[in-house]
Nucleic acid binder design. Structure first.
Lengths: 338, 338
DNA sequence: TGGTTTTGTGCACACGTGTTCACATACAAG
DNA sequence: CTTGTATGTGAACACGTGTGCACAAAACCA
């Protein structure tokens, strides 16, 4: 009776070190030591404990262990809305990279109040760090993390604060290089499809294009703004074409909008690259698909992931290291639309 | 001196309920009560504690609280390699859905040994559940979870085990509907680009196409296999075209491969849909991009996410509920490639 | 044999929380 | 004044783990 009660009660519970200890006829300490590398325990007994533990399906509860003061290995990652393909691609790579480095990402998405509340709630876990990847969040998150002693790494935009490391693609330089190249190819009448307000990259990329043109005594002849989706790129291109302004080059603030623009140009029987050069930004996987073969500015995603994880590991190794801001170099990828 | 030591030591630690209690001049119990809904505490004192807590940046440690026996709210989600766009899209939606339902997904990606090891490690956290989304994992994960009392929900493929809920798109029916429709449109010579071996959906979709043709006394005239990426679709289509077999319809096991196939057809000046119908499967966001406007079979992602979360919540509410397997109906989406 | 070192293990504490229990205070009723 | 009843609140325990400390047993040496 009592036995049955105990069994049914245990059925609901997670197997605990005490259960293994009872089964093996040793103390709970011995079980703990059997799973702690470098701890002092008779080899034979350790093996026996491991065997019984495997049999019972025991795993030390990482959270209870983290109460001891060690790291939880949990890392929160805020990814914004993941509406465009670049964000999804980076998120996927980041998850893989964190896994490989034995950090476990608790992923938060969305925008606005819901996102703010979600991040707030997730801060109640003992996180090793918070990674901001795209999306915009209230600035007071920085203060909250500082008080909770949770290091932050921002990779979508620059967050100027002590204890916040930043990784950032050199947006302006990338656009300058693209513009220079097209000018060198003889293009003169540049149109531009920019990003939405509120994104960190929007003014930077816009500025890069303007600077690249200015150093050749040129300026944009036409301009529209999209929201970084392919649909908005299509609409923006339609708008530019219907305005009647003559263009021979169209620079887009990201690849997805460039794809949309390419479709609009095709619908208008404008040949690319004969009549018009099109250049994107990011070099997402799709850019090299046969349907697009897009000339674009590479936003180095793999390097971004590696850099973020490197900063994270170094931050965990040394909490007082001064915050760093790292800029990543872009690269012009020539395919078939320039 | 002692004061300074204490301060610098505390600087490293997370703010704790005891710290707030000291600052507020109450017991730690009072602080805990101040943050526990429905607990008994003087209203004025509760307000004061909240104020001081906000000032210090205190948040109850969710993990320490979960030791009490309550749920951790952590949910592991295995997402496979996330190589194709469908997987990324579903993962993004699932993350958003879980967040909205106040579950916090610890996301694991990858494949092979690394993935197996990562999932194994993540099981050391006190998870409320494990969601399998795509990808393939050793079958012994089911047994491990059973022993650890972690409920599982599989959505990529059917996992026949007690305590594993399944959500699955009705692959065969979707393909039957697509095939029937094309036959009704007068198509007779069907080619097929299938998925890679090892995926749960591969034989089901293949079977659906065969069944749809068989009921009209037809059979496939040509067939190739890809790996669910656009590139592989392009190569497979090239292969089919170079074989010289005449076709008037090409069914692809997913949208990404259909995109690749469309490019190959364009390169060969084969007009879609005049000379050839092309149908995909999934209806990912890109399918309606102006560049593709792909006719396809909708794999209902939003419904998938809702269903998984519903199953999760019901499982948490009732651990002994018998495992369910839910099939989701597909829908033929007619655009411009049929 | 007696003393000293090595080897192995259990006890007890700490981590941060929620909650039960007992106790103190205040106040109303008899 | 005594008794009974609300109303708050602190002390103590439990959750599952890692580890310092003490202690026992065994091995070694003289």
């Amino acid at each position: 009776m009592k036995q049955a009660d105990e069994n049914s009660a245990k059925r609901r519970r997670r197997v605990t070190a005490q259960d293994v200890a009872d089964a093996a006829g040793v103390s709970r300490s011995a079980v703990s030591r059997a799973f702690t590398k470098g701890a002092y325990l008779d080899a034979e007994k350790r093996e026996n404990i491991h065997k019984i533990a495997a049999d019972l399906g025991y795993k030390p509860n990482a959270l209870a262990a983290s109460l001891q003061g060690s790291r939880s290995q949990l890392v929160a990652m805020f990814v914004g809305e993941m509406r465009n393909e670049y964000d999804k691609e980076v998120a996927a790579k980041m998850i893989a990279g964190l896994n490989a480095a034995h950090h476990w990402p608790v992923v938060i998405g969305g925008s606005g109040d819901a996102a703010r509340e979600a991040v707030d709630r997730v801060l109640s876990y003992p996180l090793d760090a918070l990674i901001l990847r795209s999306g915009s969040l209230d600035a007071d998150i920085v203060e909250k993390c500082a008080k909770l002693n949770i290091p932050m790494i921002s990779s979508g935009r620059l967050l100027e604060a002590p204890n916040v490391d930043n990784v950032c693609c050199n947006n302006a330089d990338g656009m300058i290089a693209a513009t220079r190249y097209l000018v060198g190819q003889g293009r003169r009448k540049f149109g531009y499809i920019g990003g939405p307000e509120g994104y960190f990259s929007t003014p930077q990329r816009r500025h890069g294009v303007a600077a690249g043109l200015a150093e050749n005594g040129l300026a944009l002849v036409a301009e529209e703004a999209g929201d970084y989706t392919a649909d908005s790129g299509y609409r923006a291109a339609e708008q530019l074409l219907s305005s009647g302004v003559a263009m021979d080059a169209l620079i887009c603030a990201n690849d997805a909008m460039a794809f949309g623009a390419l479709s609009a140009l095709a619908d208008h029987d404008i040949s690319v690259p004969d009549d018009m050069s099109v250049i994107g930004f990011d070099d997402i996987a799709m850019a090299k698909w046969p349907a697009f073969r897009l000339t674009t500015v590479r936003n180095p995603m793999d390097l971004l992931v590696d850099t973020v994880i490197d900063l994270l590991d170094r931050r965990l190794a040394n909490a007082t290291r001064p915050a760093e801001t790292i800029f990543l170099a872009t690269e012009l990828i020539l395919r078939e639309t320039h």
